[in-house]
């Protein structure tokens, strides 16, 4: 993907990186005495008259600059599959279909809702259509939302890996692997704690060369401690220690790994990677802002908020 066709897009993105929050900005936000002060600090950083940073806005901007946004669609697979779960559950519980959907997505949400409500799964793209049908049948037959979720999550990981490999981008392959491995560790640990059966685990665990599927399933069957013991024998031993401490610490580790990966694209002058990195950076920034707002709302102290801050791109 390191072609000069992205020269314009990468240069624009590099100029936009100047408006991302820095560590100093975050510290100021954490120290702000009121929510109003915090909001005014954010507006001052972004520049007067600028719009609020949203992932949808970032994605639209990237699509506007990128000569071929297909190379970046792997980034939105998580949202696409989340929306599939959301629409399925809304259908079964009789709620507004798109109420829990998130944006941006690769899919047209109205088309997704139409395809699911009319059971015309062939209207959906190949990477999601078959699993949508499978999940629909599973959830209507068993009414086991958790199992359907696991099926969809696992299909999401497989679709990400496949699409990343098709794109030929080393960055996207590493991203898809990282997301898959983090998800597999979380799933195995939770399933271990909930004493799930092998059949459930076989649906839920995706597997990868770094984390053998069968070993992970066997470890999960032995309980959470067994999962941690298995992780000790892999390159994820650090992650295992954090998971043993708390789920929040492990989540932070996963997010930080994504940003570490994004940083590897920061020095590239061409290619789609800096655009993907900017999207991931914006995602991390929005997550940090959300953590600060929620923590402040719940009266958490400064140290707790600082501890939870994700690694920054700039």
């Amino acid at each position: 993907m390191s072609t000069t066709k992205y020269a314009n897009a990468v240069a624009a993105i590099k100029a936009m990186e100047n408006f991302l929050l820095t560590r100093n900005d975050l510290e100021q936000l954490i120290s702000a005495s009121t929510a109003e002060e915090m909001e005014s600090l954010i507006s001052a950083r972004r520049g007067s008259g600028s719009e609020e940073l949203t992932l949808e806005g970032v994605w639209e901007m990237i699509r506007g600059y990128a000569p071929d946004s297909d190379e970046l669609k792997v980034l939105l697979y998580k949202n696409d599959f989340h929306n599939l779960k959301a629409v399925l559950k809304s259908m079964l519980s009789g709620r507004e279909l798109l109420a829990s959907c998130i944006r941006p997505t690769n899919l047209d949400l109205d088309e997704l809702a139409k395809a699911l409500s009319t059971k015309e799964f062939e209207l959906l793209p190949d990477y999601i259509g078959p699993v949508a049908e499978q999940a629909y049948e599973l959830i209507t037959r068993t009414l086991d939302g958790q199992l359907a979720d696991s099926l969809i999550d696992c299909a999401c990981m497989k679709a990400m890996l496949r699409s990343a490999e098709e794109s030929g981008s080393e960055f996207m392959i590493r991203y898809a692997k990282l997301i898959t491995q983090c998800a597999d560790i979380k799933t195995a640990y939770r399933c271990g704690a909930m004493q799930k059966q092998r059949s459930f685990l076989e649906t839920a665990v995706c597997g990868s060369p770094e984390l053998d599927r069968e070993s992970l399933i066997r470890a999960a069957l032995g309980g959470p401690e067994s999962v941690l013991a298995y992780l000790e024998t892999t390159s994820y031993s650090d992650a295992g220690k954090l998971l043993g401490e708390s789920a929040a610490a492990f989540e932070k580790w996963c997010d930080d790994q994504v940003i570490e990966l994004a940083e590897s694209a920061r020095f590239q002058a061409f290619g789609a990677e800096p655009l993907a990195a900017y999207y991931l950076a914006a995602e991390a920034e929005l997550k940090n802002l959300r953590i600060i707002r929620v923590c402040r709302g719940s009266g958490a102290d400064r140290e707790t908020i600082t501890e939870r801050m994700r690694r920054l791109y700039v």
Binding site: A7, N8, A9, V10, A11, A12, I13, A15, M16, Y65
Partner: peptide, 10 residues
């Protein structure tokens, strides 16, 4: 092309 990308933002 690269310059236009920067100027479009700044």
């Amino acid at each position: 092309e690269a310059a236009a990308g920067v100027v479009s933002v700044d």
